[in-house]
Design a protein around this nucleic acid. Structure first.
Lengths: 320, 320
DNA sequence: CCCGCCGATAAGGGTTCCCTTATCGAGCAT
DNA sequence: ATGCTCGATAAGGGAACCCTTATCGGCGGG
């Protein structure tokens, strides 16, 4: 029984699959599978098995999840306690879905670290799916993306962070630019879509949009961020979703498509644990987020501060 | 940061020295030292250092002790939860000081396991010194020996288990048998003493007796149990403490010395955590101990059920 | 029926853990 | 000064942990 094994176990249970856990941890699927196998052996119980709706826990597995979760949380707490006792900077681990993670989170955290000394922030990208479990397991402190709070995620609260408008842009030479008047949503399903990674996240705003339009997966090309998708769109390769206030700074030859029901009025939210269960640094971040300074930082954001990475959705080196 | 390292760390802090922790865990001192070193490195803090009165904790060390202790406790809880969920026998880990551990605990546990199905009991020998920490860290469930409860050990309660009388016996040919009338305690300091291992435990009843009589350590020979000490005494090698009701069954040529102030009226106690923090099996044992059946088992005890081991005071293979 | 998704397993390699015995250095009491 | 106790450290070995790539078997959906 290792802390690492327990962490993997809890994550598998919370995310409902081995692969999801492997993704969240940034390791291969067999790594997860082996961790579970080792835990099974050391405890002498199957713990979990594949069920029809995700994963079935054995009676022993059910009893252990809570305990394991506590232990993992305590381990994180211990590390931050040491860090704090030494007067070191507090650690603030933030994850965001792809779009805000590329567009506003870097500038936001940069600005926050300037204001609030003694904080060291890290940023990772995660899918909406993962966020609840990452918060619950204290694998992250803050999750920026869609609103999570609700019956699905007890113990999580969501504050609106920023209102934004989602629209669809296309290269000037594209056939759709010639159609006069408003475009039906149905018409867009057949076109080639150029999206940032949140296009692969079915619960993100972009993912939901693609699903609503009925765009099949093979019509979608994923780029590391929206700007690179726009570059392809400007080249006439297809249509691309765009965050309005970011797009207005773009200087490429692109046109906004007049689609019925668009632009969408949406929100990015800050998801955290309830006040009694979050660190001091999280509280300070939330307070900062309601300041004019932070709003400026977000709107001025132009992605000049590079997001850390793209592939491994979350940096998890908690017990390095 | 390993669960094992945390366990070692907590035990060092609670017992106040590396060697004591090593003894309690049944490993060498460098093993403990290395575990601490590894923990120090992984957390980046000294955690503890040698102070004048035992051990000094750094600020980080202070904050971590509690967290570490919780994690260790949770790990134990997790294991027993699995065991119970599988319908396996509950585990009841008992330690005792040398004298009751050899004289009554084996018979007592044997009888308890016969009455109470679904319990698997293990017995180990520990020093009085270690017992408080062993209980607090859930390295054992029950500690039989002197009374521990008090300001020194908050959270521990002690119930009287059995009243017994401690006397001193000697071979029939020994010079002391010739002295008429009562013997002064001072006279015994110069003689050769033949004791069971509790003679090396300064807080046990035998240890306290030796200290009170002023017997120097080099005058003491330690045997695996009282009966073997008596055999040597019968041989004329010296004087030996004896538990009265056990001695009356002895058939060797031995005489009780009429020492002033002896025999001592003493108690063995059952030390456990408070009711809200102990397992169901402990509760059942305590209830059993107040039954006539258990009293019979104790008084009938003649050591025929061999105590498990002698040297490693406690079996610690908790996360085997 | 076949394919794709999912978990288990094999094989291999690097690292860490954990234990041992032996030795060293610091602090302290005799 | 001389031991003594106590913790740190070296050296060495065995086991466990953790990761990878590749492959296999089961199972549900098109």
């Amino acid at each position: 029984m290792t802390l690492n094994q327990l962490k993997v176990f809890v994550l598998v249970v919370r995310l409902g699959s081995y692969r999801a856990a492997a993704n969240a941890l940034g390791v291969s699927e067999p790594a997860v599978s082996q961790a579970i196998t080792a835990l099974r052996q050391s405890l002498g119980d199957q713990l979990l098995s594949r069920g029809n709706a995700g994963i079935d826990l054995t009676p022993a597995g059910q009893r252990i999840v809570g305990l394991a979760s506590q232990m993992v949380n305590l381990a994180v707490e211990a590390e931050s306690a040491v860090r704090q006792a030494q007067g070191g900077p507090e650690l603030l681990r933030v994850v965001a879905t792809a779009t805000p993670g590329d567009a506003i989170a870097p500038a936001l955290l940069q600005a926050f670290m300037l204001r609030s000394a003694q904080v060291e922030a890290t940023l990772g990208i995660a899918t909406t799916d993962e966020m609840g479990a990452l918060l619950a397991e204290r694998l992250t402190d803050v999750a920026i993306g869609p609103r999570l709070a609700g019956t699905q995620h007890p113990g999580v609260i969501s504050d609106p962070l920023m209102r934004y408008r989602l629209l669809i842009v296309v290269g000037l030479t594209h056939s759709l630019t010639r159609s006069a008047g408003s475009i039906r949503q149905r018409q867009l399903a057949d076109h080639h879509w150029l999206v940032d990674p949140s296009g692969t996240d079915p619960l993100s705003d972009v993912g939901l949009l693609l699903a609503r339009l009925g765009v099949p997966a093979e019509q979608v090309t994923v780029f590391p961020n929206q700007r690179m998708a726009w570059a392809a769109a400007a080249n006439g390769d297809g249509v691309a979703p765009a965050v309005e206030h970011l797009f207005t700074r773009e200087e490429r030859p692109l046109a906004v498509l007049p689609v019925e029901g668009l632009p969408l009025d949406l929100f990015w939210h800050v998801n955290t644990l309830t006040a009694d269960r979050r660190t001091a640094a999280v509280g300070r971040l939330l307070r900062y987020l309601s300041s004019p300074d932070s709003m400026q930082a977000m709107f001025r954001a132009d992605g000049r501060v590079p997001a850390s990475k793209f592939k491994p959705p979350v940096y998890v080196t908690i017990w390095s």
